[in-house]
Design a protein around this nucleic acid. Structure first.
Lengths: 229, 229
DNA sequence: GGCATACTCCGAACAGCGTTCGGAAGGGCG
DNA sequence: CGCCCTTCCGAACGCTGTTCGGAGTATGCC
């Protein structure tokens, strides 16, 4: 949660010395801390009142400010949504990298269809864990919101990583990837919209994965028959 | 834009007789006509400015009124959304019944997997034709909106009809129906959210249907091999 | 025909929203 | 100390959905 590189010093020049380099960061760090606090409070409010129920006066009150003060930290309400968007995708990316690390550590447990199953399960969990986040990241539901290029770059990065992992297990055509994303996002959105808190759709994940694998990656499901000679 | 059947002529009086029964309908008919006009204008506005971009002052202006006057016809803005919700599902039901009629008329062309294919194609077309309608009917995106029991009954009726048709072609377990709805709504929502106006996901419909049929209704796809002795 | 009634319609206003502006405080630097 | 830049906020603007009270009008009854 440290400050991005670009926001750092701004100072430059002066006469140098090592300790002097991070002194101007004092204010910058404080500023970044407040920004983070605002975004965290925004997540809280959004979980309580829904994604569209976020009010700047409420949000400001929760961090001990008045509404106009937020404009010292963000250009607009959409800029707050944008910061949340990026944070959400960073969390998604972190989960993804955790999964990749597990796969490296114990390749046997996460190869072939097991990897697909785990990917699907984690994805749907990630979505249902926080419906407001799902709405912000994967549905485009806020009237005129579009993520900034920097935020969108994070989103594309993680999607590219997923596609690459797909290629590594032998699923290369883009049609299959699109079919996969449609299938998973469909499960998640149906679950959230029509059975919130339940598991009417999420309990179909395994069947969905098997259906997908049978049609799109048959080479992944031969292991079962091989284990019964 | 003709009046519904129940509203009748409005004509004249004379001396009692049968015409007297629909005389009190005069105002009711006019009222219903205005309601319909308001809902039609709301659809227009929603297509132009997005589902959440609907403003009562704009809407009133479009039908030659001021905002408070709308409250003679609807209890609230949500009541207008509710009327649109019902109208949307009635349109969906009409499309569905058209399909059912075609299937009855020409059973050969719409049996087995062809029926699935047509259902899927029509559904995704229905969604992408009007993204605002898709959002209102199938995503729950308006902050505190919930359809009234009467409106929701329409929604359930058409879903039940679809499930029944599923049973008729031999797909009986509810898990398959849920998987089907997840798959189709996933295709539609990805198409609308990530490639509006394009066909990146909608062109995968046939593959999706074949994938689903292979896993969930294998009895529907044997005809191909049978035709090559 | 005349009167009472009900329905439509709207101007004004209220509370809430995101946002802007101007000025009042506060901490860091010469 | 004085300067400056940042932070903070009260007030206000234009927008939103909604309520209220009072006009104007078409209807139903006698």
């Amino acid at each position: 949660m440290s400050a991005p590189a670009s926001t750092a010093t701004t100072r430059v020049v002066t006469t140098a010395s090592a300790a002097e380099a991070d002194r101007p960061d004092r204010r910058a760090a404080r500023r970044q801390a407040t920004r983070d606090e605002i975004v965290a409070a925004a997540w809280e409010l959004v979980r309580e009142k829904g994604l569209a129920g976020l009010s700047l006066r409420d949000l400001a009150a929760r961090v001990g400010l008045k509404a106009p003060s937020l404009y010292s930290y963000f250009d607009s309400k959409h800029a707050i949504y944008d910061a949340m968007f990026m944070e959400g995708y960073l969390a998604f990316e972190a989960g993804w990298e955790r999964l990749a690390a597990e796969a490296t550590e114990d390749p046997a447990a996460l190869e072939g269809i097991d990897l697909l199953r785990t990917m699907a399960t984690r994805y749907v969990e990630f979505c249902t864990d926080d419906p407001a986040r799902f709405q912000l990241l994967f549905q485009r539901t806020i009237p005129d919101f579009e993520p900034s290029p920097e935020s969108y770059a994070v989103a594309e990065r993680v999607l590219a990583a997923a596609a690459e992992r797909f290629g590594a297990i032998g699923i290369t055509d883009p049609g299959s990837v699109d079919l996969w994303t449609a299938l998973l996002s469909g499960l998640a959105s149906q679950q959230i919209a029509n059975d919130p808190g339940g598991d009417r759709w999420s309990r179909r994940i395994d069947e969905a994965v098997e259906m997908f694998a049978a049609a799109r990656a048959p080479h992944l499901i031969t292991t079962i028959t091989r284990s019964q000679p």
